[in-house]
Design a protein around this nucleic acid. Structure first.
Lengths: 193, 193, 193, 193
DNA sequence: CATGAATGAGAGTTCATTCAT
DNA sequence: GATGAATGAACTCTCATTCAT
């Protein structure tokens, strides 16, 4: 694919992303994307065969870009500081769930009979779990955290975050509650059981 | 509405429920419902103007029927027993999320700009929270539970349950993990902080 | 299907027949049929899923209607007279092949991987062969025809008629030639070998 | 046109031929040809404006190449031997009609309102007739054949061959029947009337 | 010459919705 | 009330054809 093609494909993905955020996955038509991108009817099909393919690429792009996280970490940060940063990011996301692909992703995976292996939500949850597990283990090692089971606590955190996310999407969730729940999660690490 | 009409309406709602479980909310068409019910195209419109209206009634019916819960509670049950029963019910649901309206409900509320007041998910979460809060307060009063903040713990439980539910829907969740997470929730009530 | 539906279906088939005569099979679109029938886009799909289905019914109707042949036969006709009538019909058809479904049928069967059993062209050829065979056998019995092999001559006649038909369609064929070829076929029966 | 151009054009024609054999004439698109040749979309248009033009050239090439027939004829062959060779060639073709352009050609001429002069099927039929006529006349002269009307018998043979061809395409035809029908044609020349 | 991205016309198909019976 | 035929809007998808490079 030529350089220009790559650019155009990326442009389509970015435009489509906005639509998926707004309308979810199922409700989005190829026509919606065509109109958003202001390209011709057939033009879109040069790049993607269906909305599914577009959505996959949208998710892929997002996954790549989110790799930039934790850029604010300094070498000499304590584990608590890093974790605090992680929760801060999570809070930011929770406050803007409506401007996020989350709902579309949920929709997509609710009804896709997709191989468990290439389930992005699962993959990202697993990655988050592993990252947290390592971090917690390190915190325990350094004496910052209580003697908890790192893996178990990591999983617990991730499930709770999912709960907060989906609640934010369906019912809305206040900053106060977010703060409180995240606080509980953090304290559990520090508090002696 | 005549008696026969009431019956027919209920019949439609029950058939439609199966479709919403299978296909979610957005993907379901009036045609799907007509075909599932084996009624005439025009016939459905006598009862419901669109899928939205059908889905609302499906949810309403389900809410009414789920009121039958806690039927297994005996007068002399301890609070722990009641809570255990509640978690047992939750576990059962978590193991069969795919045969549940949950995904359709999420889908529905993700993209409905609906009045916060008639958001059934919210309502049901609130009810669950209040019920749990009272139960926990009672448990504390009776000395069964530790001195926790009933409201806060109730909310925490509900959010975690949401997290497990949505995870079950998108990625699947093993019985082992369900057991463990529910166990953690229960222990937190009993354990001395 | 209601009486009205049956009427409408027949109406569609008749209109479609004209189009198939004009354009063959492959080139005809559902849109062509819709426009010829002056019905709505979706309307046609209530009756037929695709052009293939329409064409099948067109052929079926034609097969039924062509059963009316040989209505001019009298009880006391000689076999020669009957055969002459048959050839007269064939001549009439050969002179108007362009107003016939023949080309569309050929097109249809050239590229359809259809079960040999439900191949209408084949079926009709076989029927014609059998009919001719019986007739010739009868003619021999009655002493009208020479002692030929009825089956073999019948087949020969049918293949030759196919040859004349397809030639008429691709290159045109003059009445003179038709007369001569049909004459040869007839004479072969009468002439002593 | 440069030498390279000529080569490329021939290459396209050969590839296109395969497609026309497989799909007939009407169903073939410029895209089909482009893909079969693995050339650029625009590239094809440099050589041919539409499928019609491609098909014409395909037929032209084939006509030229088929001129190689009768290469097996020796100077001292009898007319019967030459005719037998001709029928042998015909039989071979009849047994492999599906790997032949015949169906596409029929399709093409069924619906082309083309000038009778440049109708290749007609031209080729006429040539075959003339060739046969001469051959038969020669056979009669040499005393190999009975005193038939050469022109009339030649035409008769050609029409019958058309009948067998089109039957082979639509319904299939067994080797046994081919043999018998060709035998009948030959015998008619030899047998005394 | 050659490429292949881009366009837009047009065919296929599905459904929400209406309405005569 | 109930039916289901009919309509037409909306979407999907494919190609012939053009054109900048």
């Amino acid at each position: 694919m030529s350089d220009k093609s790559v650019q155009k494909k990326k442009y389509i993905i970015e435009k489509a992303r906005e639509i998926f955020i707004e309308k979810g996955f199922v409700a989005v038509t190829m026509k919606d994307i065509v109109e958003a991108c202001d390209i011709s009817r057939g033009g879109l099909y040069l790049y993607f065969p269906d909305t599914d393919a577009v959505f996959q690429e949208v998710m892929k792009l997002e996954a790549e870009e989110s790799g930039d996280s934790f850029s604010g970490i300094r070498e000499d940060s304590t584990v608590s500081e890093i974790l605090a940063l992680f929760f801060k990011e999570q809070k930011k996301e929770l406050l803007h769930m409506r401007d996020t692909l989350a709902a579309a992703k949920y929709e997509y995976y609710f009804f896709k009979k997709t191989d468990k292996k290439d389930n992005l939500i699962r993959t990202q949850m697993m990655e988050a779990m592993k990252m947290l597990e390592k971090l917690i283990a390190l915190g325990i090692e350094r004496g910052e955290f209580a003697q908890v089971d790192p893996k178990q606590v990591a999983e617990n955190i991730v499930y709770m975050l999912e709960g907060l996310k989906v609640t934010a999407l369906t019912s809305g969730i206040s900053e106060k509650i977010i703060d409180r729940e995240l606080m509980i999660l953090m304290q559990r690490l520090i508090t002696e059981d």
